[in-house]
Design a protein around this nucleic acid. Structure first.
Lengths: 211, 211
DNA sequence: TAGTTGCTCAGGGGAATCCCCGATTGAGGT
DNA sequence: ACCTCAATCGGGGATTCCCCTGAGCAACTA
């Protein structure tokens, strides 16, 4: 049985074109050109993959994905847009889309993208792929940190709690030491990291995602 | 002209197998089974795509990618590994790999992955794709935040600077207002967000990535 | 043994923070 | 005209933060 695809786009001509191109290989179970019809249609027909336009008058693709993803988590969404703006990509991925391609894509590539989405791959236009990977690489803590090595274990304990926004008094109670000892440790940390106050320290820690 | 591929793996039998499978479609310009030979070979043969094992005795794939990426930024790397651990994936992407697939992949899929890497796509095994997307979605600031709406524009100005670790005095100077006005705004923000001090505020902001 | 390092604590002082109490101005709505 | 609210400032006080000097104790090193 061929992959069931549902199309959502407010440009009917484009919708017709895509339908004609994909009809050979896939089973187009339905189409919609506004958000409400899309949500209803997708819930009824339960397609494998939904091809969805990002920009639509009444809320856009995000509203559709969010409306359906909760009740039908197994349905995959591939965003199809004229825009390659970062905000649009982010919004769609955050909503739950598994891929994002621009409308400059050719018919074979689109068919291939749908196949890949269906088996679980994430699909992005080449230019967007780099963007996504960069954001991904920057999102993760770098475990090995030479700056942290110069701190003693106790100093790191204090650092973690300070970074979480605790006052000296609270840190002291949590570690069962005196406030004065906390002050000493904080001073050492500030000196070693060349920072001037606990606010900069908190910022330093948040950049390295020490939480 | 067919795509030039370079193979790096310390398991020579695996290397031979991959070479045999790919030789029809691609031009295998060289192979290596350790880090140094890989860096030398890649620099000499300038392949389009490098298929690289993540785990190798003397440093692993990360060392190879980092060693080559600076001098030859146009060479694409596809990580090929038995491991699907998050740290390995992160390390390779951070180093500069454009894709990551596990060794359970079949010959056709691998060929397809190489083709896609070559044209600029990012390629991941289905399971890893979800992981990468989740991390990506969590990495980006959420523009629309209901909590932020209750704050006035000026309060948000102050909030941003406080979150960056500036003292009241510095915030006052940057915004050309009095310290007392800064205090007023901070107090309003703390009350509205139900926080008790600027440290918690900084933490609140860093969680929402308001920087 | 002598020296170093990490962890602990104290006193004191100056700065910063936070919260009261107010106040004025201006823009916008009823 | 009246009210509300955002934005601006001030005094004063309690608390917290940051730095300085100084010191005891344990553990490891030379």
């Amino acid at each position: 049985m061929s992959t069931k695809v549902f199309l959502v786009d407010d440009h009917r001509l484009f919708l017709a074109g895509v339908r004609a191109e994909l009809a050979e290989e896939f089973s187009i179970v339905g189409t919609a050109h506004d958000v409400d019809a899309a949500i209803d249609g997708i819930r009824s027909f339960k397609p494998d993959v939904v091809l969805i336009d990002v920009h639509m008058p009444d809320g856009g693709g995000v509203a559709v994905v969010e409306g359906v993803a909760e009740t039908n988590p197994d349905i995959k969404f591939l965003a199809l847009s004229v825009s390659d703006r970062a905000e649009d990509v982010i919004a769609m991925i955050r909503a739950g889309a598994r891929g994002y391609v621009t409308k400059t894509i050719g018919p074979e590539e689109l068919a291939d993208a749908i196949r890949r989405i269906h088996v679980g791959d994430a699909v992005f236009s080449p230019r967007l792929a780099g963007f996504v990977l960069d954001a991904f690489a920057g999102a993760i803590p770098s475990a090995d940190d030479p700056e942290m090595d110069q701190l003693t274990v106790r100093e790191k304990d204090v650092l973690r709690l300070i970074a979480r926004g605790f006052a000296y008094k609270q840190v002291a109670r949590k570690l069962n030491i005196s406030i004065k000892t906390v002050e000493t440790h904080v001073s050492s940390v500030l000196r070693k990291l060349q920072l001037s106050n606990r606010h900069e320290l908190a910022r330093w820690a948040s950049k390295r995602r020490i939480v």
